[in-house]
């Protein structure tokens, strides 16, 4: 069992997309629109280069009705501040 667990960890580390750490609630959905690396220019704003603090601050601002989002204000409202912080930290850790 222990050996299996170690093996699993090694395999997780070797694959690019899935993070070793378990995704906090909601986090794994982000990459449906925001590519983990790069992102099409002119399209949905990329978040790949943003820090965890930037992502958190933007989401909290959207929640408060600030900024000019199209859809992220509606999504941000579904998360608590600790949840947003956890998502931002996970997104950055997985790069």
């Amino acid at each position: 069992m222990r050996r299996l667990a170690i093996l699993a960890c090694v395999m997780v580390a070797a694959t690019p997309i899935v993070h070793a750490a378990e995704a906090p609630p909601g986090a794994s959905a982000c990459s449906g629109c925001h590519a983990p690396r790069g992102g099409a220019s002119g399209g949905i704003p990329p978040i790949a280069a943003k820090s965890a603090d930037e992502i958190t601050a933007t989401m909290l601002a959207y929640q408060a009705g600030e900024g000019e989002p199209t859809v992220m204000n509606r999504i941000a409202k579904g998360f608590t501040e600790p949840e947003i912080r956890a998502i931002a930290a996970w997104l950055v850790a997985g790069r």
Binding site: E22, P25, G26, C30, G32, V71, I75, G78, F79, E83
Partner: peptide, 8 residues
């Protein structure tokens, strides 16, 4: 653990 999901 309990997840959260999103749709757009």
């Amino acid at each position: 653990a309990a997840p959260k999901l999103i749709n757009t």
